[in-house]
Design a protein around this nucleic acid. Sequence first.
DNA 1: GGTGATGACGCTACAATATAACCTAATTGA
DNA 2: TCAATTAGGTTATATTGTAGCGTCATCACC
Lengths: 161, 161
Amino acid sequence: MAEQSADAVLERAAALCARRGVRLTAQRRRVLEILCASARPLGAYDILDAMREGPRGLAPPTVYRALDFLLEQGLVHKIESLHAFVGCHHPEHPHASQFLICDTCGTVTEIENEGITRSLGSAASASGFRPARPVVEVIGICSGCAKSDPDASPRTTGGRT
Amino acid sequence: MAEQSADAVLERAAALCARRGVRLTAQRRRVLEILCASARPLGAYDILDAMREGPRGLAPPTVYRALDFLLEQGLVHKIESLHAFVGCHHPEHPHASQFLICDTCGTVTEIENEGITRSLGSAASASGFRPARPVVEVIGICSGCAKSDPDASPRTTGGRT
DNA sequence: GGTGATGACGCTACAATATAACCTAATTGA
DNA sequence: TCAATTAGGTTATATTGTAGCGTCATCACC
Ligand SMILES: [Zn+2]
Ligand SMILES: [Zn+2]
Ligand SMILES: [Zn+2]
Ligand SMILES: [Zn+2]
């Protein structure tokens, strides 16, 4: 799911940033690349390690600043329940991000379910609540893992590609 | 919302634990009390501070162990997006916890919306995904804050009662 | 009542995640 | 070119969460 469109996503991200008049600098692009190349969400320190494989030694703030930018631009999402980040594969239009997170293989699937969005909206407005940032993350077992191993043990965050 | 039933919740929690044959020890009860007495979610270290106001000096593992127990028993919930915890006010029956989190005053409202639960379930099963732990947290502005201050600044976690 | 097994907790140290603060370098717009 | 703005390097530190180990309380059973 990540693999097929990593380059295309990068290209579209560049176009988006140009259109918005914001700068997709080398560092930011690098972080986005690393995230899009991974099948699983990566922690900030996983990204940091991946970047250190290149030339110089970097520090946490560099990665966090890049992530802040990418989050603002909607190019990546944060998975709150994992303290980790994923690249967004359809950042052109804003969307309520909803995730299915496999506890076994660690893959994260971003979905956009109109029913969930609607239910959330009506539940919120019923309380007079004005929603800003919905966090919908369903932890469970993906179909592949459910088949192969009826009960398996959890995984950790990292592991590039 | 927290205030009205704090004692009642404690009593019911004790009954629940007795019925289940698990021990609601003094420490665990204390943590639950502190959480239920707070109108806002508390971080583990907020709880730790609150407990230190009493007799001896405690360490983080004490609080985290109590929280683990209370989470297992469904007596408290973790708010992933805040790294904080709230007491549950209807722990008798298991439920998918859904939260409305006000970014301004910090209050958290636990709701149980059947529509959201259903949408999540059908979205998951459409992908062959077997859900285990849904995380639904809507960050936004509560009705009270929206009225009094059309755009206000975020808040931090803590602050007992 | 002893007695061994289990569970709860005190305690130290440490891991993992995230940010503050300050300064330099690059980019932009005039 | 030059001031203003933005991005990034660097160090230190804050915040959140665990590992590991020894001790004490509780419980089941004799
Ligand atoms: Zn997305
Ligand atoms: Zn899986
Ligand atoms: Zn609840
Ligand atoms: Zn509010």
